[in-house]
Design a protein around this nucleic acid. Structure first.
Length: 115
RNA sequence: CGAGUAAGCCAGACAGUCGCGGGGACAAGGCGAAAGCCUGUUCAUGAGGAAAGUCCGGGCUCCACAGGGCAAGGAUAACGGGUAACGCCCGCCGAAGGCGACUUCAGGAAAAGUGCAACAGAGAUAUACCGCCUCUGCAGCAUCCGCUGCCGGGGUAAGGGUGGAAAGGCGAGGUAAGAGCUCACCCGACGGCUCGAGAGUGUCCGUCGCUGUAAACUCUAUCCGGAGCAACACCGCUAUGGGAGCAUCAGGUUGGCCCGGCCGCUCCCGGGGUGGCUUGACCGUACCGGCAACGGUGCGGCUAGAUAGAUGACUGUCAAAUACAGAACCCGGCUUACAGACUUGCUCGCAGC
RNA sequence: CGGGGUGUGGCGAAGUUUGGUAUCGCGCUUGGUUCGGGUCCAAGAGGCCUCGGGUUCGAAUCCCGACACUCCGA
């Protein structure tokens, strides 16, 4: 994953948690804040409470795949943080996909003009 | 055919579309003094048998030494071999379990010493409660021998019951009653002899008859300096960073103490890149040596290297795709988790020839 | 990567050093006191001491392995 599309530093995470908007769904929590770079960046949080390394890796890869496929459907220039919740371990991919799309719409990042 | 036992092996495959990591090749553009960086196309490649737990052993790196002494601590434990090394592996011995194939074992020393053994029991490393035998005295009966009871002294370890354990077992002789006190057989320990490379072994000989516990302290033998890739080295940079505290008769210097040598020390805040980083006690295969673990020689091969951390999504076929589970400096083991599929050797039982 | 700690009735703790009887407080149940409740008094129940092996005559305690929770350092 290219470094310019990722949120890396812990202080960035803490800033977005504190200042950004949040949307809660049964499978994930979405935090977002506008940055001044003109590019969309992603950060993923998967807690050790959800499982061991293999389970956490699978959840993270699915969340990143969902983000990648919908990157052109949203407004650019925002930092997105996705936090996985307990149900996302056993959830089907399509349900998580719908949850992410509805969360984008609630946050006001969905670009209606594309569709 | 059924039941069991031991060992080995695999860990979804194939096709298509989109996407990711590092690597090779290609051609063009942009930035730059240059090295090089960014963008594009294409090619092959990309987690495990345990990658896990971090329980042992090593490589590698730095620190302390390249001085000495003492003390303490930790680990291992039959024997022979393998290995870079090991607490691992192989073989073998002994003990325990199983009809058997086979499995399990921290398996040195209790006669160097200290400790502990509750309850029960008379008594727990030594004993005399009941009992058995005997002697003195007294009393009763008898008044010849003696018998019975009581107090006290002595002998005894056969019988009783307790216990995990009671001083080898059983039979005969022996005796006042008894006792390995003596004898035959059996058991165990030690020494000699036989066989074996050794631990050990035995229809052999001799001596002896000793509670258990060392995963209690301990003794004996062998081994161990410390820390870990966030180690460490280099480049750049704030330019030898800033602040606070303690001390200069002290303190520190890798962990305990003493002597010797050397040196001020501790804490907080701030910080990017490259190397280390994958060719190695490596993998495959053939032959040779060895019961085996393993070793030797020849030929062929290169098989992740990330740095907030690369494998995901969808469709189809195979009866089904579902176990445990994600490299993080690298190897050798151990331990633990685990759906299902396959192969081979051996044992026992039943049936048939 | 390295180093510790804890696990005992429903809850919180002692006992582990030096092996032998599992104890204390709160809570629970029953009875008494009261017109009734609380307080108080008396009696009682509730435990394979996280799990699996081993040593021992005997293990919460000693040894080995696992699991869960938790803390510290780089």
């Amino acid at each position: 994953m290219k470094a310019e599309y990722t949120v890396k530093e812990n202080r960035d995470f803490r800033r977005i948690y504190r200042r950004g908007k949040s949307v809660v769904t049964p499978y994930l929590v979405l935090y977002c804040q506008k940055n001044n770079r003109g590019k969309t960046r992603l950060g993923v949080t998967v807690s050790t409470k959800l499982g061991k390394a293999v389970i956490r890796n699978r959840v993270r890869r699915r969340l990143r795949e969902i983000w990648r496929l919908h990157r052109n459907d949203m407004h650019a220039g925002w930092d997105i943080i996705l936090v996985a919740r307990g149900r996302s371990v056993s959830a089907a991919y399509q349900k998580m996909d719908k949850a992410y799309c509805s969360a984008l719409q609630q946050a006001g990042l969905w670009r209606e003009d594309v569709r």
